[in-house]
Nucleic acid binder design. Sequence first.
DNA 1: TATTAAATTGAAATTCAATTTCATGTTTGA
DNA 2: TCAAACATGAAATTGAATTTCAATTTAATA
Lengths: 143, 143
Amino acid sequence: MTKELQLFQQHVARNGCHQSVKRERVLEIFLETQSHVSAQELHGLVRKKYPGIGYTTVYRTLKMIADSGLAVEVDFNDGVKRFERKLGRDLHAHFICTKCGRGFEVFDEGIKKISLSLAKRKKFSLQKLRYELFGVCRECSRS
Amino acid sequence: MTKELQLFQQHVARNGCHQSVKRERVLEIFLETQSHVSAQELHGLVRKKYPGIGYTTVYRTLKMIADSGLAVEVDFNDGVKRFERKLGRDLHAHFICTKCGRGFEVFDEGIKKISLSLAKRKKFSLQKLRYELFGVCRECSRS
DNA sequence: TATTAAATTGAAATTCAATTTCATGTTTGA
DNA sequence: TCAAACATGAAATTGAATTTCAATTTAATA
């Protein structure tokens, strides 16, 4: 059993939920993703391998995955919620291209430091942060 | 005529739009706001003083205000788009309390520097950035 | 193992803000 | 003044998020 599955099962148990094979399948596929996915997109991926799993289950499981701390939400400002794996302690930003709509990942440590100090200053307990940059990507600015 | 109105009119003209008294009214009320408003909320405010202005006009005008650079969008992750005045060059963050849902403003300069250097590194032309912190505010963490 | 209360599932329904439509009213340039 | 282009807003549409509910599955207990 992977460390992620273990964490997920713990979260499930802690919330008085039953085990479920389908949820494990959804988690499995989610963990294979390399970047942000929406519930719809994840459902598409899940269906390829496990056709018997419906959208609602994927939707709800994705939420549970995020609640369990294995995923974080990212927002490209297009009305669709996307999630991506939370990899270790890496905090990263997203560049969202306002022309082509793609999202690029950028890693940086400074943001975290600043965020923690701001939170401390305001006596705010920090749960998560969102840091996204909008602009035009290199390719789009050529054309 | 205020500097803001002038900027707005310029933007309107540049886009081949006609003048409109109603739009000026909406801008007037928007400029009186002290923090983030949704289109619905702004419409509520507008109606108090100018009952004859409909929601759609407020909605569209708010969008134009943002396009003109006089407002920026902020997102409390509750599915509602909010806008607030863009004051000078001040970049500021928002703390959104996940318990009471309120948003608090925090000012900081470091974020901007980091953002610009990240954009440069990725050859990305930066248009705007979003920086929001989620957690529990001081009051809510008491109870 | 049988029972059964509680949780899961998913198709369909609902919700809700964002956005668009379209018929009518207004602005602007000639 | 006239006509083309734009503005307006009530109503309709869109679309993703979320909920409902009846059927199915899980797991605790006898």
